[in-house]
Amino acid sequence: MFKIAVLISGGGSNLQAIIDNIENGYLNCSIECVISDKKDAFGLERARRHNIKTYVFDKKEYGAELSYRILETLENKVDLIVLAGYLSILNWDIIKKFKDKIINVHPSLIPSFCGKGMYGIKVHEKALEYGVKITGCTVHFVDEGTDTGSIIIQKAVEVKDNDTAESLQKRVLEQEHRALSEAIKLISEDKVHVNGRKIIVKDM
Protein backbone atom coordinates (compact mmCIF):
# COMPACT_ATOMS: atom_id res chain seq x y z
CA MET A 1 0.00 0.00 0.00
CA PHE A 2 1.32 3.44 -1.00
CA LYS A 3 1.59 5.56 2.14
CA ILE A 4 1.17 9.33 2.27
CA ALA A 5 1.20 12.09 4.88
CA VAL A 6 -0.88 15.22 4.31
CA LEU A 7 0.23 18.60 5.72
CA ILE A 8 -2.40 21.30 6.23
CA SER A 9 -2.86 24.76 7.71
CA GLY A 10 -6.58 25.43 7.33
CA GLY A 11 -9.95 24.01 6.33
CA GLY A 12 -8.58 20.92 4.66
CA SER A 13 -10.85 20.75 1.60
CA ASN A 14 -7.97 19.33 -0.47
CA LEU A 15 -7.45 16.76 2.28
CA GLN A 16 -11.13 15.87 2.10
CA ALA A 17 -10.88 15.37 -1.66
CA ILE A 18 -8.00 12.92 -1.12
CA ILE A 19 -9.97 11.06 1.56
CA ASP A 20 -12.99 10.86 -0.76
CA ASN A 21 -10.86 9.53 -3.61
CA ILE A 22 -9.39 6.84 -1.38
CA GLU A 23 -12.84 5.81 -0.21
CA ASN A 24 -14.29 5.69 -3.74
CA GLY A 25 -11.38 3.58 -4.97
CA TYR A 26 -9.75 6.15 -7.27
CA LEU A 27 -6.63 6.22 -5.08
CA ASN A 28 -5.01 3.01 -3.87
CA CYS A 29 -3.16 4.50 -0.93
CA SER A 30 -3.45 5.21 2.77
CA ILE A 31 -3.13 8.46 4.70
CA GLU A 32 -0.79 7.55 7.54
CA CYS A 33 -1.23 10.89 9.29
CA VAL A 34 -2.26 14.51 8.92
CA ILE A 35 0.05 17.21 10.27
CA SER A 36 -1.00 20.80 10.90
CA ASP A 37 1.02 23.88 11.82
CA LYS A 38 -2.10 25.39 13.44
CA LYS A 39 -3.96 23.93 16.41
CA ASP A 40 -7.39 25.14 15.25
CA ALA A 41 -7.16 23.99 11.60
CA PHE A 42 -10.51 22.43 10.65
CA GLY A 43 -8.68 19.90 8.53
CA LEU A 44 -7.67 18.14 11.76
CA GLU A 45 -11.35 17.48 12.48
CA ARG A 46 -11.79 16.08 8.96
CA ALA A 47 -8.94 13.64 9.64
CA ARG A 48 -10.31 12.57 13.01
CA ARG A 49 -13.73 11.85 11.50
CA HIS A 50 -11.99 9.25 9.33
CA ASN A 51 -9.82 7.85 12.13
CA ILE A 52 -6.62 9.29 10.67
CA LYS A 53 -3.80 9.98 13.11
CA THR A 54 -3.12 13.70 13.58
CA TYR A 55 -0.18 15.77 14.81
CA VAL A 56 0.01 19.49 15.56
CA PHE A 57 3.37 21.22 15.34
CA ASP A 58 2.36 24.85 15.82
CA LYS A 59 4.74 27.12 13.92
CA LYS A 60 4.56 29.72 16.71
CA GLU A 61 5.68 27.13 19.22
CA TYR A 62 8.25 25.17 17.19
CA GLY A 63 9.69 27.91 14.99
CA ALA A 64 12.91 26.74 13.32
CA GLU A 65 12.39 23.24 14.76
CA LEU A 66 9.15 22.73 12.79
CA SER A 67 10.63 20.92 9.78
CA TYR A 68 12.83 18.78 12.02
CA ARG A 69 9.78 17.61 13.98
CA ILE A 70 7.99 16.70 10.76
CA LEU A 71 11.04 14.84 9.45
CA GLU A 72 11.38 12.98 12.74
CA THR A 73 7.71 11.95 12.51
CA LEU A 74 7.68 10.88 8.86
CA GLU A 75 11.13 9.55 7.97
CA ASN A 76 10.99 5.93 6.76
CA LYS A 77 7.23 5.85 7.38
CA VAL A 78 5.65 7.35 4.23
CA ASP A 79 6.27 7.25 0.49
CA LEU A 80 5.02 10.77 -0.25
CA ILE A 81 4.39 14.02 1.62
CA VAL A 82 1.46 16.04 0.27
CA LEU A 83 1.25 19.76 1.06
CA ALA A 84 -2.47 20.54 0.86
CA GLY A 85 -2.80 24.20 1.77
CA TYR A 86 0.22 24.01 4.08
CA LEU A 87 1.62 27.51 4.59
CA SER A 88 4.85 26.97 6.53
CA ILE A 89 8.12 26.69 4.62
CA LEU A 90 9.93 23.35 4.90
CA ASN A 91 13.69 23.56 5.36
CA TRP A 92 16.41 21.94 3.29
CA ASP A 93 16.93 18.87 5.52
CA ILE A 94 13.46 17.40 4.98
CA ILE A 95 13.49 18.37 1.30
CA LYS A 96 16.83 16.57 0.86
CA LYS A 97 15.64 13.45 2.71
CA PHE A 98 12.39 13.37 0.72
CA LYS A 99 13.80 14.47 -2.64
CA ASP A 100 11.06 14.21 -5.30
CA LYS A 101 8.74 12.83 -2.64
CA ILE A 102 7.08 16.08 -1.53
CA ILE A 103 4.36 17.69 -3.65
CA ASN A 104 2.48 20.95 -3.28
CA VAL A 105 -0.61 22.43 -4.91
CA HIS A 106 -0.50 26.15 -5.76
CA PRO A 107 -3.55 28.17 -6.90
CA SER A 108 -2.09 29.61 -10.10
CA LEU A 109 -0.40 28.49 -13.30
CA ILE A 110 3.22 28.63 -12.15
CA PRO A 111 5.39 30.62 -12.87
CA SER A 112 2.62 33.25 -12.70
CA PHE A 113 1.54 34.64 -9.31
CA CYS A 114 3.76 32.48 -7.15
CA GLY A 115 6.71 32.77 -4.80
CA LYS A 116 7.14 34.65 -1.55
CA GLY A 117 3.91 36.11 -0.17
CA MET A 118 1.75 34.52 -2.85
CA TYR A 119 -0.77 32.29 -1.12
CA GLY A 120 -4.51 32.04 -0.55
CA ILE A 121 -6.77 34.82 -1.75
CA LYS A 122 -3.77 37.06 -2.56
CA VAL A 123 -3.00 34.91 -5.60
CA HIS A 124 -6.46 35.44 -7.09
CA GLU A 125 -6.43 39.16 -6.30
CA LYS A 126 -3.17 39.49 -8.25
CA ALA A 127 -4.55 37.48 -11.18
CA LEU A 128 -7.58 39.78 -11.42
CA GLU A 129 -5.45 42.89 -10.95
CA TYR A 130 -3.20 41.81 -13.82
CA GLY A 131 -6.16 41.05 -16.05
CA VAL A 132 -5.28 37.51 -17.10
CA LYS A 133 -7.91 35.57 -19.07
CA ILE A 134 -6.75 32.15 -17.90
CA THR A 135 -5.53 31.09 -14.45
CA GLY A 136 -5.63 27.73 -12.71
CA CYS A 137 -3.61 25.55 -10.37
CA THR A 138 -0.32 23.69 -10.37
CA VAL A 139 0.86 20.56 -8.60
CA HIS A 140 4.65 20.52 -8.38
CA PHE A 141 7.49 18.85 -6.54
CA VAL A 142 8.90 20.85 -3.65
CA ASP A 143 12.52 21.97 -3.82
CA GLU A 144 14.55 24.47 -1.81
CA GLY A 145 12.85 27.47 -3.44
CA THR A 146 9.28 28.76 -3.05
CA ASP A 147 7.01 27.36 -5.79
CA THR A 148 10.07 26.62 -7.94
CA GLY A 149 9.96 22.80 -8.15
CA SER A 150 9.28 20.79 -11.31
CA ILE A 151 5.66 20.88 -12.51
CA ILE A 152 3.67 17.64 -12.51
CA ILE A 153 0.13 18.74 -13.42
CA GLN A 154 -1.59 22.02 -14.30
CA LYS A 155 -5.33 22.72 -14.66
CA ALA A 156 -6.63 25.83 -16.44
CA VAL A 157 -9.56 27.96 -15.25
CA GLU A 158 -11.14 30.71 -17.34
CA VAL A 159 -11.35 34.12 -15.69
CA LYS A 160 -14.79 35.66 -16.10
CA ASP A 161 -15.45 39.38 -16.51
CA ASN A 162 -17.54 39.50 -13.33
CA ASP A 163 -15.19 37.41 -11.19
CA THR A 164 -14.25 38.47 -7.69
CA ALA A 165 -11.20 37.03 -5.97
CA GLU A 166 -13.56 34.83 -3.95
CA SER A 167 -15.51 33.47 -6.92
CA LEU A 168 -12.31 32.78 -8.82
CA GLN A 169 -10.77 31.09 -5.79
CA LYS A 170 -13.77 28.76 -5.54
CA ARG A 171 -13.46 27.56 -9.15
CA VAL A 172 -9.70 27.15 -8.92
CA LEU A 173 -10.12 25.15 -5.71
CA GLU A 174 -12.37 22.69 -7.54
CA GLN A 175 -9.51 22.04 -9.96
CA GLU A 176 -7.02 21.75 -7.08
CA HIS A 177 -9.14 18.92 -5.69
CA ARG A 178 -8.85 17.08 -9.02
CA ALA A 179 -5.20 17.84 -9.75
CA LEU A 180 -3.80 16.86 -6.37
CA SER A 181 -5.44 13.42 -6.40
CA GLU A 182 -4.38 12.91 -10.04
CA ALA A 183 -0.77 13.64 -9.10
CA ILE A 184 -0.89 11.27 -6.11
CA LYS A 185 -2.35 8.54 -8.33
CA LEU A 186 0.33 8.96 -11.01
CA ILE A 187 3.16 8.96 -8.45
CA SER A 188 1.74 5.97 -6.57
CA GLU A 189 1.58 4.04 -9.86
CA ASP A 190 5.20 5.00 -10.68
CA LYS A 191 4.16 6.94 -13.78
CA VAL A 192 5.99 10.18 -12.92
CA HIS A 193 9.65 10.45 -13.92
CA VAL A 194 11.88 13.44 -13.24
CA ASN A 195 14.21 14.58 -16.01
CA GLY A 196 15.81 17.79 -14.76
CA ARG A 197 13.06 20.41 -14.68
CA LYS A 198 10.91 18.35 -17.00
CA ILE A 199 8.45 15.79 -15.67
CA ILE A 200 7.66 12.84 -17.92
CA VAL A 201 4.25 11.30 -17.22
CA LYS A 202 3.90 7.83 -18.69
CA ASP A 203 0.78 5.93 -19.75
CA MET A 204 -1.63 8.84 -19.38
Rank of each mutant, 00 (worst) to 15 (best):
H124F: 09
T148S: 14
T73Q: 13
E65K: 13
R171Q: 09
A179H: 01
K99M: 14
F98Y: 15
I102H: 00
L109I: 03
H140A: 08
V159G: 12
I31W: 03
N162D: 12
L109W: 06
L27T: 10
K202M: 13
A156S: 15
L66A: 04
C33D: 03
A17H: 02
A127N: 11
D79C: 08
Y55A: 07
S67D: 05
L83Q: 06
D58P: 08
K3N: 15
S36G: 05
E174R: 02
K101A: 10
E72R: 05
K59I: 05
I4R: 03
E125Q: 12
K170Q: 06
A179M: 02
V139F: 08
V192K: 01
V123I: 08
S108M: 06
N162G: 09
I102N: 00
K96I: 10
L66N: 11
I110M: 00
G43K: 02
N91W: 00
P107R: 00
V157N: 00
K77W: 10
P111I: 00
P107H: 02
R48M: 09
D20W: 01
I153C: 06
I134H: 02
A64I: 10
A179D: 02
L168G: 04
N24Q: 04
L66K: 03
A5R: 04
I200T: 11
V194S: 15
T146C: 12
R48G: 07
L128Y: 02
L27V: 08
R49C: 13
V201D: 03
K39H: 09
N76V: 06
G117F: 10
F113C: 02
G131D: 05
E166H: 07
I18H: 00
Y62N: 05
R178D: 14
D100Q: 15
K133W: 00
M204C: 13
I187S: 01
Y119P: 04
C137A: 10
I103D: 04
E129Y: 03
A179K: 00
V132F: 01
G25V: 14
K160P: 11
N21A: 07
H177S: 08
I153Q: 01
R48S: 08
S9Q: 08
D79Q: 07
D37S: 13
C29M: 09
L109N: 04
K59N: 08
N51L: 05
L173C: 07
G149K: 07
E189K: 13
D100S: 10
L180F: 01
K3L: 12
S112V: 01
